[in-house]
Write a protein that binds this DNA or RNA. Sequence first.
RNA 1: GCGCCUGUAGCUCAGCGGACAGAGCGGCGGCCUUCUAAGCCGCGGGUCGGAGGUUCGAAUCCUCCCAGGCGCACCA
Length: 500
Amino acid sequence: MRASAPARLAARLSDLAGAPVVLERPSDPAHGDYATNVALRTAPQHRRPPKELAAELAERAAALEEVERAEVAGPGFLNLWVTPAWLAEALGEIGPDYGAGTPERRQKIQVELISANPAGPLTVGSARNGAYGDSVARLLSHAGHEVEREYYFNDAGRQVELFRASVEARRRGEEPPEGGYQGEYINELAARDVDPVQYMLGEIRREVAEFRIAIDSWRHQGEIEQEVAGVLPKLDSYEAAGTTWARTSEYGDDKDRPLIRSEDGSYLYFAADVAYVRDKLERGFDRAIYVLGADHHGYVGRLKAAAAMLGYDPERIEVLIYQLVHIVEGGQTKKISKRRGDVVFLHELIDKIGVDATRWYLVSRGHDQPIDIDVDLAAERTQKNPVYYVQYAHARIAGILRNAEGEHGGTPSELEKEERDLIKRLLEFPGVAAEAAERRAPHAIPIYAIRVADDFHRFYHEHRVVGSETEAFRLALVRATQSVIAHCLDLIGVAAPERM
RNA sequence: GCGCCUGUAGCUCAGCGGACAGAGCGGCGGCCUUCUAAGCCGCGGGUCGGAGGUUCGAAUCCUCCCAGGCGCACCA
């Protein structure tokens, strides 16, 4: 896989400049198709005025066949205009594998996501975990890594027993136990003749699939707990205050962590964490990614400490934190609590607005940004979800392609403004996808997709495709646009419809 | 008290070292005999929480302060 056209252009310019050139797309069209600040950045080390350096580079750049014009502007920017032939040729590179990377070092990566207790249906909080984590997994896979998705069922702990007891109490017509679970779904479960935990295990698998997340590996707490006894002797631990402690504070954690409950000698959760870390890394993953809500960010230190204590490079453990989803009711914002029943379930949101709008909505803001879902406004607000705007562009193109019979391709001698803008936008895709993967920031994809749809709708409004003088070229342009939109939607698990 | 995250247009959010800060929604006004009007165009709207600092250049980096969210269990 060779570098994308803009990357190759940047590389040629880097040779001319003798320094790495980063091309950006200026917002002001008067500043060219591409611009670079190399002269500004390298002026200090050359001890020469940036404008002088930029002027020299401009002269050399203008001699490149792909460059139509090069100008120095402002304090020392170099602005470039590219030829229609270069744009048309670059367009030809857009296809099924467009933007797919081959990393310098292909890694085997595990992404553990959701892993909600089977103590009820998935909440919108878990849905954010899934939408975010799965999109990161898709991005990494697109970037060329080998990715496996795992879901860990905490199906043997205290919370789950409390849940089971709550349902059973309900069946006997009693109040739930102290700290137990409440809510309509408990009543519904009580009415069914099933083991509540077994039932939820099945329900969650179904919901995850419906949310378009393909889990490769389902693990259960019991499996990990069997490994605990074998791991504990390998830890740097000591006895104090009636229990065994892992000396995690020596390995970057805030404090030491107890491994065994002194009351009854049973393993505490951290013991399972350690066993699980080893389990993951021993399975040959170069990297184990955990996707956790902000309420679990205290986990980062202890998981890395666990790895370090076992002799692994803690860099192999990566914890992705996303901010929480809150529900807003009557102007009041509150944290989701399954136990209290203050909760919006994923299936409710899907029923209201569908999988596409739900996934788009949950992944389209930065993971560092909290999300409020207003129970009353959710449906109304998401009717205006930009997902439809993007899907519409895809469907519109499908319509054009249904009407067209001619060949695709060719290079017109002149390009319309809307065509140039659209092509340049499409050429951004490999960079956008690579950066999104690198930064674990899938929200860049929907934002970019909106811009593509934007440029397409503008083009569509101004120019006809079928029956135009440059029909073959425009068919290729429109087909490439559709392909890039489809790639974007796929990266975030949203459907790309042929008709709307 | 300590740690992580956040504070950008009326609302929801992008932008995270470059050229006058952007989009969607909401408001107002235009555009369908032509490939889907779920569309396009125009208008209005911002001391980028505050104060210092680094830099040729800061919404973007550093420090402090203010405000909000989340953590700091022998629960998960």
